[in-house]
Computed example of a mutant assay.
Amino acid sequence: MENHCIIRHLAETFSGVLTIDLLRYLVGAGGVFLIVNLALAARLYTRKIRPDTPPLSQIRREILVSLRTVLVFTLTGTLIALGAEAGIIPIYTEIGSYGWTYLVFSTVVLIVAHDAWFYWSHRMLHYPPLFRRFHRLHHRSYNPTPFTSYSFDLGEAVTNAIYLPLILLVVPAHPVAILIFVTHMMLRNAIGHSGYELFPANRHGKPLFGWMTTVTHHDLHHAHSGYNLGLYFSWWDRVMGTEHPDYHTEFRKVAHATP
């Protein structure tokens, strides 16, 4: 009877996390696609980075592959939930336990640390022997779409998934901080693959928020894979010399255009 209860609890936890992760991908990637690539495409046509449109066959492949990524994320999410129940992963439920200042601080830490994790793991995956096995599938989407955001080889999906349980072992977090983190991750990822420059330019035609990666920034990575390896912020690429030399020129072409 006890084993039956444990199995049922595991199944309920897994199904709950799966529902959340699947909805996050479908609403995040699908929502950005519907709004940016369909509903606003005519108004944003001067901000379109590539002249051609990705074929439907590519989008179908991306969605199917992304379902596997969702399963990988669900497995790690289930481990996080079970780890929290066991007291191994310090997720707290009362904001007053740490205070509002810590809630903001921990959210920022989750995002900034993830950017560092992504840059260095992404750079590792571009090492030729690893690229062929773990990262080539993502770059089959030479002209990306929002659905590219989860289109990973299995090894890359695991590399991305293990970040959250690892960081939560050392950074106690409230569910609100985790929710903000995963929502930000999904939306920035989907927007970065949308193919339309949505970030504003300053009066000189450079990114208004120069410390953030723009859509052009990541789109150049899909066109020239050795450059622009960052996810949210541009500072690692600048410090390590991996920012594309024509980034600001390419950004200016689309960000300064007026529909």
Rank of each mutant, 00 (worst) to 15 (best):
H244E: 11
T213C: 11
H224Q: 09
D21R: 15
L82W: 05
H138Y: 03
L40E: 07
V108P: 03
V158E: 07
V70D: 06
A177K: 00
E85T: 04
L164T: 05
F199R: 12
E156L: 07
T145K: 00
K48F: 04
R252F: 05
A255T: 08
E94F: 06
F251E: 07
R24C: 01
F209H: 11
Y98R: 14
I63Y: 05
N228D: 07
F181R: 01
K48I: 09
I20P: 10
F209V: 14
L166H: 10
L23Q: 10
K48C: 04
A223W: 11
Y119W: 06
S57A: 15
S149T: 13
I91L: 15
Y98M: 15
A84L: 06
R68S: 09
H174G: 08
L64R: 13
T93Q: 14
H4D: 13
D52R: 12
E2M: 09
V171M: 09
H224K: 06
R8K: 12
L164N: 01
G87Y: 03
T13W: 08
V215N: 02
R61E: 14
L125S: 03
L154Q: 08
R188E: 12
L130A: 13
I91T: 10
E12L: 10
R136P: 07
P54Y: 05
W236Q: 09
V239G: 07
V112G: 04
N189M: 04
T46D: 11
R238Y: 00
H193C: 04
M240R: 13
L82C: 10
N202T: 01
V109K: 00
L169K: 02
W120P: 02
V17S: 06
D21F: 08
I180F: 10
C5H: 15
R140A: 06
S15W: 10
T107R: 00
R238A: 05
A177L: 02
L56C: 13
R24S: 07
L168D: 14
I88F: 01
H224N: 12
L231P: 02
V215E: 05
A257R: 15
D52K: 13
H204Q: 15
Y232F: 13
A223K: 02
S225N: 12
P128G: 05
